[in-house]
Computed example of a mutant assay.
Amino acid sequence: MKRQLSEIEKKQVQMQQQLKDGSLKCFISGEVIGVNDEVEYDHILAFAKQGDTDLSNIRIVKKNIIVEKKTNHFMKFEII
């Protein structure tokens, strides 16, 4: 089972999650992702918990939000 996405797959995820106005929002925070924001491609069902690296299981998240998620600063995640 592979863990990383190819560049082509990343573009596909971006196209799937792009809003009608062309913008992207962070899957966790709902914040608009700006051109200077760093992003990560996060598994909805964690890879460590047997989550597939399938486009349907991947969401774009701002990198600073991932850092907070990994250090457990988010007490509650709300799916937007």
Score class of each variant (00 low, 15 high):
N57Y: 01
K70G: 12
E68D: 14
K70N: 11
K49S: 03
I66W: 09
T71Q: 09
F77T: 14
T53K: 02
N64Q: 12
R59D: 02
K69S: 05
N64E: 14
N57D: 03
E78G: 07
K49H: 04
I66K: 09
N72Y: 13
H73K: 11
K49D: 13
N57E: 03
V67Q: 12
G51N: 02
R59W: 10
G51W: 12
D52M: 05
K69R: 10
V67A: 12
L55H: 07
I66V: 15
R59S: 07
V61I: 07
R59L: 05
E78D: 14
G51Y: 08
L55G: 05
N72I: 10
Q50N: 10
T71K: 08
N72P: 03
K69A: 09
I60Y: 01
D52E: 06
S56I: 01
K63R: 11
M75A: 12
T53Q: 09
M75D: 14
E78H: 09
I65P: 03
K70Y: 15
I65S: 04
S56V: 03
T53N: 06
F74K: 06
H73Q: 13
T71Y: 09
I58S: 00
E68R: 11
V67D: 15
I65W: 04
D52W: 06
N72E: 09
I66A: 15
T53P: 01
K70S: 13
K69V: 07
F74G: 06
F77K: 08
I60C: 02
L55D: 06
K70T: 12
I60L: 01
K76F: 12
V61C: 00
D52F: 03
D52V: 02
E78M: 09
D54T: 08
K49L: 04
K63A: 14
L55I: 13
K63N: 11
M75G: 12
N64C: 09
I60S: 00
I58F: 03
E78R: 11
R59F: 10
M75Y: 14
V67H: 10
I60G: 00
I60R: 00
T53H: 05
G51I: 06
I60Q: 01
E68P: 04
K62P: 00
N72W: 09
I66T: 10
V61F: 00
K62A: 01
F77G: 11
K70F: 15
N64I: 15
I65C: 05
I58G: 00
T53F: 02
K63I: 13
G51H: 07
F77H: 10
I60A: 02
V61M: 02
N72R: 09
I58D: 01
L55W: 09
H73C: 05
M75T: 11
H73A: 10
K49W: 03
V67R: 10
N64A: 13
K76A: 10
N64L: 13
S56N: 06
E68S: 11
K49N: 04
I60M: 04
